[in-house]
Design a binder for these strands. Sequence first.
DNA 1: CCGAATCCCACTGGATACTG
DNA 2: CAGTATCCAGTGGGATTCGG
Lengths: 133, 133
Amino acid sequence: MPNARTATSTWSPQPDDDPATACPISPVVDLVFSRWTTPILWVLQAHGTQRFVELERRIGVTPKVLTQRLRQLERDGLVQRRIYAEVPPRVEYEITELGSSLHSVFAALGEWSDAHLADVEASRAAYTGPLPR
Amino acid sequence: MPNARTATSTWSPQPDDDPATACPISPVVDLVFSRWTTPILWVLQAHGTQRFVELERRIGVTPKVLTQRLRQLERDGLVQRRIYAEVPPRVEYEITELGSSLHSVFAALGEWSDAHLADVEASRAAYTGPLPR
DNA sequence: CCGAATCCCACTGGATACTG
DNA sequence: CAGTATCCAGTGGGATTCGG
C-alpha cells in the first residue's frame, strides 16, 4: 500500500475525496493493530524477552499464526529475533526500540479504556435497535 | 474468544498467565480498530456529519459492510444516527462526544506515524528473510 | 524445543441486484 | 437515497503432522 501522503502532513481535518487517503492513519493501523500483533507487542513490552513457546502460551495462539505474525513484526522492525545454536534449540524474541516507541500509543489507548470503556458497555446494554449479523 | 477460564480457577497463584488478560487493551482494540471503523470515525471527525452515500464514497466501502459497521458503532455509542422522514429519505451520521474522545488516541497514532513510519518502511526494504504468506 | 507444511473450515467482506 | 438480499472468493486461523 503506497502512502500518498508525504511531507506536508498536517493531522488536521483537510478535505480529501480520495478513499485511499481519506484516513491517513490507516497504514499505521494495519501495521500495529493487525490480528495478534497488539498482544504480542504488549507481552514483549511487559515481560521482556520471550521464547516462542512462552508467547504461544501467554497469548493463546497457534504456532502457525504466531510464526506469521512474528515474521511480519520482524520484517517491520518492531521485533528482534535471536537464534541460539544450542541443543535443544532456543529462539528468543525481543521488542526493538522502534517497537517500544509505540508505548505512547498503547498508553493513550489504555487511558481511554479506563475512562470510557464503561460508557461503551452501557451504550451496548441500552441499545435496542436491529443487530445485523 | 472461547477462553476456558471457568471462574472456578480458585487456587492458581499465576500472576497473569491467562491469555484473556495478557493484553488488557484488546477490548478497546477490537472496538476501535475493527475493519473500517477507523476510517469511518476519522471521516466523521474530520468532515462532520455525513450522509450514508457520502461515507460510502469517501471511504470506498460497499453499502452492506458500511451498514454493518455503522450499526456496530451506533450500538457502542460512538456514532449517532439520525433519520429524517423526507422524500427522498435522508439519514445522517454524526460522531458522538464519546466517539470524539478518541481523538487523543488518533493523535498519538498520527504522531507516531510521522516520527517512525519511515523507519518501518526502511526495515521492510532491508528485510531479506523468508516471507510467509 | 522451534517451527514448517498441509488440510480444512468459518467467517469477512466484496460484487451485484433489488426494494421502499 | 438508504439500505437489504444473495452469492461467492479470499483469507484468517484451528488441528494435525513432520522435520531440524
